[in-house]
């Protein structure tokens, strides 16, 4: 069943576009690193953001789309019915989809983020560009947290896709979680900006690495708690999806 879900996901052309868009980050990261390198040559040293962090939203939104479309494409074309006829055990079907989506997004995210990291360090060489100040061990939590955030977003996308059955509604909700709510949180009066902001999905990544959320916002959650909250997002979305999917008429 996992094999058949994998085949379905692979044969949807939008999956390939989405992974392609995520992979674009490697190219953008290289361009970025060259540019930053020339600036460092001119100015001596510079504090530039790491490209795999700066371009992370592109990876996140592209691969979240993979999760959404894995299910809404079937509702859109009506192929959900044959899928359910072929696999009447709906829980198993959804579990297979979730497994495939997790694998099909985690591996590209892992590859894109680590390759971008490696390429940007290679290009920077021994120039002081800011993002190469720490060792690989220092950067590792942030890199792994970034990868995990992509997996979680794809699973959240899948869950929202099942619940809403609509590409637009599911993508809109993902955008809400990824951009709109985190954009509104900093405007809450203190201390609510930190209390609420710390739980926002994209803000969990820096907290996993024990860093500040942004120049304006301190972190609140210790790394282990941030990982748990991040996983909680996926869990809530998937539980909702399982409950809805089992009871609803196709």
């Amino acid at each position: 069943m996992i094999a058949s879900e994998w085949l379905k996901l692979r044969s949807v052309s939008s999956t390939r576009y989405a992974i392609g868009a995520a992979a674009l980050v490697i190219v953008l990261g290289a361009v970025w690193s060259f540019y930053v390198g020339t600036l460092a040559d001119a100015r001596g040293s510079i504090r530039a953001a790491a490209p795999e962090e700066g371009f992370l939203p592109l990876v996140q939104i592209s691969l979240a789309l993979v999760g959404v479309l894995a299910v809404t494409a079937e509702y859109g074309t009506g192929t959900i019915r044959p899928s359910l006829t072929a696999v009447p055990r709906r829980r198993a079907l959804l579990a297979a989809k979730a497994t495939v989506v997790a694998a099909a997004t985690t591996l590209p995210a892992l590859a894109v983020i680590f390759i971008t990291h490696a390429v940007s360090h290679l290009i920077a060489g021994d120039r002081a560009v800011g993002y190469n100040a720490g060792s690989f061990g220092d950067d590792l939590p942030l890199l792994l947290g970034s990868v995990l955030s992509v997996t979680v977003l794809a699973l959240v996308g899948l869950g929202l896709g099942v619940v809403t059955r609509s590409t637009a509604a599911a993508v809109g909700s993902v955008v809400g979680l990824l951009f709109v709510l985190p954009g509104i949180a900093p405007y809450l009066p203190q201390p609510w900006n930190v209390r609420v902001g710390a739980w926002m999905l994209p803000n969990l990544v820096p907290q996993i690495a024990g860093e500040r959320i942004s120049t304006r916002l301190d972190g609140l959650l210790p790394p282990a708690a941030a990982v748990a909250v991040l996983a909680g997002y996926a869990l809530v979305a998937l539980v909702a999806a399982f409950l809805v999917f089992e009871r609803r008429d196709a």
Partner: peptide, 15 residues
Amino acid sequence: SAAGAIAILVGLVYV
């Protein structure tokens, strides 16, 4: 395509 258009819209205004 809804997915493509919304993705680009979000790209333009956020990413």
